[in-house]
Amino acid sequence: MTVSAPASAPAATLPFVDRGPLSHAVMSHLTGDDDAAAADHTGLATAAVAASADVVRDDDIQLALFVLYASSYGSLPQLDADLEWDPALLTTRRILEEAFESALRARVPMPESPEPTVDAVGRALFALAAADTGPSLSRHIAKKATREQAEETLIQRSVYTLREADPHSWAIPRLEGRAKAALVEIQSDEYGGGRPQRVHAELFARAMRAAGLDSTYGAYVDDVPAITLASHNMMSMFGLNRRLVGAIVGHLAAFEMTSSIPCRLYADGLHRLGFDPDVAAYFEEHVEADAVHEQIAARDLAGSLAEDHPELLPDILFGAAACLTVDGWGGEHILESWQAGTSSLRPRVAS
């Protein structure tokens, strides 16, 4: 599969281009560009939110949020580290987050609230995951996908998976007791249990290279649609805002509970299509690991947090439901594109 090189970016070192005046201004500010537009990204954020028909799928808004969050992760070294806590950038981020969170809360269907006990919350989360019966991208990959579609799936996943586990790790210092211990147990596995070569993000980078793709973080940002950025941005928003610690815990629970079986299907499809074994190895790693993690995440993490802090239960459920809903929207976009005979990726602007 060939993906064309990106067009010139407002800051020459970034591996992707802006998607409108807001993302242009944010990128310019964070890369130290002297572009005059960088000075007014807060006003542009207010205007973009007011004009947007759908904040969740708005390319300019979602790319701006992605770059703002990348400043905190350090995932794009081209961004000036001295600007991470710049007041103007934080104001812009807050404007976008308020609109994004409001849109999610208005559109994500919420389950009935259980009693705030470990067992009741665990059962409710498993029931929520079981009720998620939308179109299955993993089944398509297992049975029907072409090699090019499988490569597209790796590209779509790269925005999060090359930083796998990082959004949820923001919650570690914000938890205590049973919930903290459970999260650290999960994250220790995600980060390889002390073995750098087993870090899950590195396993995915190896998978991309084995598939002939670029494993550099950000290499395919130009290619993915806004809904893919929104999925990652949602995790970042939940993780970086202390008031949303319940939501990031719920998100992780749902994420782990819907991973094991799909990963087996992805691996089956990659073997069927003749990919290098290193490509399927990433998914095979998750088949057994996530079957264990789902129990820890649902009960020991989310259940104990709700039991110890009942006031967080609504956000735990919101985070779980948002994970399933937004990732479902992303999967629908991919499958609908393929059913229409088109790519799920964005067309590149010719350089």
Rank of each mutant, 00 (worst) to 15 (best):
V245Y: 07
V224Y: 09
G218Y: 08
E202W: 12
L240H: 13
S188K: 10
A210H: 06
T258R: 13
L162R: 01
L183Q: 08
V199K: 01
E256K: 05
P135Q: 06
H232I: 13
F255I: 02
A131H: 01
R242M: 10
V184E: 13
V159Y: 11
G134C: 10
E164T: 02
G177Q: 01
L183H: 05
S259C: 15
Q187I: 14
F204C: 04
I155Q: 03
L162M: 04
E151A: 12
G134R: 14
S169M: 11
P167D: 05
N233M: 04
S215T: 04
R163D: 07
E256F: 08
F204N: 02
P167Q: 05
E202V: 14
I248C: 07
I172D: 10
A130R: 10
P196I: 14
R198T: 00
S158V: 04
A207N: 06
F255K: 06
R174Y: 05
R243T: 14
A171Y: 07
Q197G: 12
L252Y: 10
A165E: 00
E164D: 09
N241I: 08
I227D: 04
I141P: 02
A182Y: 03
L213N: 05
I141E: 00
A247D: 09
E256Y: 09
G177I: 08
M208Q: 10
V199W: 04
E190T: 05
V221K: 12
S259Q: 11
S231Y: 15
A142F: 07
A179V: 01
M234A: 13
M257A: 15
R209C: 02
A130G: 10
W170F: 15
D189L: 02
Y160A: 01
E176K: 12
T216I: 00
V245W: 03
S136L: 08
F204Y: 00
Y160S: 03
L175E: 00
A150C: 14
P167V: 07
R178A: 15
V224I: 13
K180R: 15
A219C: 08
T133W: 03
S188R: 13
R209Y: 07
A142V: 12
A145E: 09
I155D: 03
Y191P: 01
E176D: 14
E148D: 14
R198A: 00
R163T: 13
A226L: 04
P173M: 04
A182D: 00
H168Y: 09
E176Y: 05
Q156W: 15
N241M: 10
D223K: 12
T153M: 13
M208S: 06
A171Q: 10
Q149P: 08
G177N: 07
A226E: 05
E256Q: 11
V249N: 00
G193M: 05
Q149A: 09
P173H: 03
A219M: 07
E148P: 11
I186E: 05
Q156K: 13
M208L: 14
K144Y: 15
E190C: 13
D222I: 01
D132M: 08
S169N: 11
D222S: 04
V245H: 07
E202M: 11
A201Q: 09
T161G: 03
G134M: 11
V224K: 08
R178P: 00
P167K: 00
T258E: 04
R157T: 11
V184I: 11
E190S: 12
G239T: 00
E148T: 15
Y160Q: 07
E190V: 09
T133A: 15
L175F: 02
M235H: 12
L162A: 02
M235D: 03
L240R: 15
D132R: 06
E164K: 03
H232M: 14
A205L: 06
P196A: 14
